[in-house]
Design a binder for these strands. Structure first.
Lengths: 195, 195
DNA sequence: GGCTGAAGTAGACAGTGTCTACGCTCGCTG
DNA sequence: CAGCGAGCGTAGACACTGTCTACTTCAGCC
């Protein structure tokens, strides 16, 4: 009960070290050997639990996905108005990407998802279904709620991505994502009055 | 005039080797030494023209940005209806991302743009201004065309990103981006009839 | 003709991911 | 209780990477 992580196995310690490191150094600093050092073991030790470096990174990214899912669930819960819930969801998504940029970048590295597909599917599909049902209520006329939800999600993702690249500043003159979020919400879920 | 690249300097040859390599091996295969090998020089030679590996990658990425700009300009030119032009623009953007995934990924690596910012600004700002004016015409009621254009661009970017990560398949059940593009266009530029 | 500076070579260095051989240390079994 | 075997971590090698620093080569110029 010293640090609260006494009875962890090495596997958990490695993943936790990765989560800490990606917050400190960004997605580029997540070398296998650095994670091992931070976990206090030799560079060969991770191989017992993760067959490859990428597998360890995927485990770290999975931690990020569950954290994001938790925040989205928390944000989407209160209130009845689907538009307000979608706004809260979008804010939570963008907040996560801003507050944990290294983790966010790691989560969407293209070469991760190949191996992480099944676990990712399990984590994010319920969330996406929630998004689908929200949009189905908010836009009763739309032919395909799944497509509408995908387009809205893509919009959020694009805003987060462009901001992390500093492209928002270049395009709209400000780093603030909120105006773009409002625009995206107005576009995909029309007919709302400002709260 | 043997290969058509006879009188190139090493700098151009290195950039061209990088463009070819990123198409063949993806963004991960773009090591400094591999580029040098493909250009037929030793691994120390690039240092004369590029102070660092990242600088060389940025030059390769800049090539990608000018190519993308050219395709967007070509796609946006014909026709008068701003909605149709926006659709063509979106298709061109998504086509580029699909046909040159390695280059597209390289272009939006976060650590590139820091050094590439000025050149990127010069290349992409006119294009974005074009997008702004298109949206200003298509959505006369919108309070800020720049924000509207940014949101639309973010939507395109998000669709491309999610598709390259295989997340479209996961969300909407198909890899096709066209339905999402139509949804994004309908959302951001309402009131259009199918062409 | 000798010099200078640019351009490319070659090697060293630290760091990386992966692989293999080697210990240590438990818990089980005879 | 002794011994053993499997699980777990260490240590070192290997090929590869980016960067840095001599060294060579060679065209151009006073």
């Amino acid at each position: 009960m010293n640090e609260g992580h006494e009875d962890e196995g090495l596997r958990e310690r490695l993943v936790r070290a990765g989560v800490e490191l990606v917050a400190l150094e960004g997605a580029q600093g997540l070398s296998l050997r650095e994670i091992a050092r931070r976990a206090g073991v030799s560079h060969g030790a991770p191989r017992r639990w993760f067959p490859t470096h990428l597998a360890l990174l995927s485990a770290v990214a999975r931690e990020g996905f569950t954290a994001l899912a938790a925040e989205l669930e928390a944000a989407g819960a209160p209130g009845d108005d689907p538009r307000a819930r979608l706004l809260a969801l979008g804010r939570a998504y963008l907040d996560f990407a801003r507050e944990r940029p290294g983790m966010y970048e790691l989560m969407f590295r293209h070469d991760l998802l190949e191996s992480e597909r099944p676990g990712l599917r399990r984590t994010s599909l319920p969330l996406f279904d929630e998004l689908v049902s929200l949009l189905a209520v908010a836009r009763p006329g739309h032919p395909s709620p799944r497509v509408a939800a995908g387009a809205f999600w893509a919009n959020l993702h694009g805003i987060a991505q462009l901001r992390s690249r500093g492209a928002l500043q270049l395009a709209t003159g400000t780093e603030e994502a909120e105006p773009l979020l409002r625009a995206a919400l107005d576009a995909h879920v029309p007919g709302g009055s400002p709260e």
